[in-house]
């Protein structure tokens, strides 16, 4: 099973591999959530929802259900 942004732990970084789900709002893509870009989990609210991300140097908060649609490859640091 592949990892999604919802699996990230605080401070972890990953590369976005796929965000083609039709349920991902276009606005998020426009903010830089596109394959190949780096995403980092910056902060989480209680119950890990919503989550606060740094995507491609844009800082955005999204809900867990949206995060679970975006596939990633972990960056091992």
């Amino acid at each position: 099973m592949s990892l999604t942004i919802a699996d990230l732990k605080k401070g972890e970084r990953a590369i976005i591999t796929d965000c083609s789900s039709i349920d991902i709002p276009l606005k998020l893509l426009e903010m830089g959530c596109l394959p190949g870009n780096v995403v980092q989990l910056f902060q989480v609210a209680p119950f890990r929802d919503p989550i606060y991300l740094n995507i491609n140097d844009s800082f955005v908060a999204i809900r867990k259900e949206t995060a679970a649609l975006i596939l990633i490859d972990m960056i091992n640091e």
Partner: peptide, 8 residues
């Protein structure tokens, strides 16, 4: 569907 995207 619930959409929620907010810039920080």
């Amino acid at each position: 569907k619930t959409f929620f995207v907010i810039e920080m």
